[in-house]
Simulated assay, not measured.
Amino acid sequence: MSAPLSRHHATSVAYVGLFAALMAVLGLVPKIDLPFGVPITLQSLGVMLAGCLLGGLRGFQAITLFLIAVAAGLPLLAGGRGGMGVFLTPSSGYLVGYALAAGVTGWLMRWLPVHSPRRAATSAFIASALGGIVFLHLLGIAGLMLFAKLTLQQAIWIDLAFVPGDLIKALLCAAIVHSVAKAMPDWRMGGRTSCHA
Rank of each mutant, 00 (worst) to 15 (best):
M1Y: 01
A3N: 10
L5G: 02
S6H: 08
R7T: 11
A10H: 09
T11R: 14
S12N: 12
Y15G: 03
V16L: 02
L18E: 00
F19M: 01
A20V: 08
A21V: 15
M23Q: 13
M23S: 05
A24L: 05
G27Y: 04
V29M: 09
K31Q: 15
I32D: 03
P35T: 14
P35L: 12
F36R: 03
G37M: 02
G46V: 10
G46P: 05
V47I: 15
M48K: 11
G51D: 12
C52K: 07
C52A: 15
C52N: 15
L53M: 13
L53A: 06
G56W: 08
L57M: 11
G59K: 06
Q61S: 14
I63E: 01
L65K: 08
F66D: 03
I68W: 06
V70R: 08
G73V: 13
L74I: 06
P75Y: 03
P75K: 03
L77Y: 00
G79T: 08
G79N: 03
R81N: 06
G85A: 01
F87Q: 03
L88D: 01
T89F: 00
P90F: 06
G93H: 04
Y94V: 13
L95R: 07
L95T: 09
V96T: 09
V96Y: 06
G97T: 10
Y98P: 04
Y98N: 05
A99T: 12
L100E: 04
L100H: 07
V104F: 10
T105Q: 07
W107G: 09
L108C: 04
W111P: 06
A121T: 15
T122V: 15
T122P: 01
T122R: 13
S123K: 14
S123I: 15
A124N: 14
F125L: 15
F125Y: 15
I126Q: 11
A127N: 14
S128W: 14
S128H: 14
A129E: 09
L130T: 12
G131M: 08
I133L: 15
F135Y: 07
L138N: 10
I141F: 05
A142D: 09
A142T: 14
L144D: 11
L144N: 11
A148C: 00
K149P: 00
K149A: 05
K149I: 00
L152N: 07
L152Y: 12
A155P: 14
I156A: 07
W157M: 12
L160D: 00
F162N: 11
P164A: 07
P164L: 10
I168G: 09
A170L: 10
A170G: 07
L171H: 04
L171T: 15
I176H: 01
V177C: 04
A183C: 11
A183F: 10
P185R: 05
R188F: 08
R192P: 02
R192F: 02
S194V: 12
C195R: 10
H196Y: 14
A197F: 08
